[in-house]
Amino acid sequence: MSRFLVRRLIQSVVLLFIVLTITFFLLRLAPGDPMSRYYNPDFSPEMARQVRESLGLDRPLIEQYFRWIRAFARGDFGESIRYQRPVRELLAEAIPNTLRLTIAALALHILVGIFLGVLSAARRYSPFDRVNTIAALFVYSIPEFWLALMLILVFSLKIHALPSSHMQSLDVEGMSALSLFLDRARHLVLPAFVLGIASAASTARYMRGSMLDVLREDYIRTARAKGLPENRVILKHALKNAALPVVTIIGLDLPFLLGGAVIVETIFSWPGMGRLAVDAIYARDYPVVLAINFVVAAIVIIANLLTDIAYGVLDPRITVGRGGGK
């Protein structure tokens, strides 16, 4: 197990390095530079040249690359060109916000997806199952941005039930801890729903299929022959087996969740990493873009590692970290 972890960790570092290198050069291939946004009659080419020089952008690209890699290896993410603040500070503000959104969405994804999938399989071909199938297909087919706008239209603008943007109300000063929590929870509902519901729908479909496969297995017949009630057959004997492939899918889904967060955060003015990334890309704020890429890549790699470990916990036939075996 520990040897497996060490090997995976080394692989991860190499992978991160490759991802960052590609990002660095791709970013520089894009037209424009951090000066683009300053262009106006008062900003002379001479001033632009001076700023570029101060940022080191006039050096050969390969030299910039190595300088940046060295700084990165020391843990120095540099300074945002746009905000004139350390990137580390910007990330420290944005990451917890994105985590709040994605964890809520992931919880919705897992709980709703598995619950509906199991229920659908247990009541196969019932009206519930049919409605569920159609609803899942429908939800899965809707683009996130459109769903977000429609929900804002209905819940924020028509019935005024939920806020349409930001993480909390403007007048939070002097609120009690409880009402602050409730205020933040209300702000979380729409973005987390938009972000999680499509994956929940697909997970529900996978879960249903996986569950139906497992319910045909001989050991399910054995469990019934023991005299176990059907709900225990499903929740104990079938669920653990059926969850195996679904765990992988949830793990592989995480990059899409983080990608979706970019859109959702932009629509709901959520001050997280996704919105920071979009703004940074528009402003060609290279240090910020690279740092966010680093964080997202690291999260995805860690999530994949956790998925592999979860597999070993769920299925005793799989020994994580040993070659061969059954």
Partner: peptide, 25 residues
């Protein structure tokens, strides 16, 4: 009927590998 199954009447199936749940001891 559930009180009869596994209690008064039991059954042993043909294929022991697939008839045992792989994820429980």
């Amino acid at each position: 009927m559930r009180k009869v199954r596994g209690n008064k009447i039991s059954i042993v199936f043909q294929e022991p590998l697939t008839s045992l749940n792989p994820v429980f001891t």
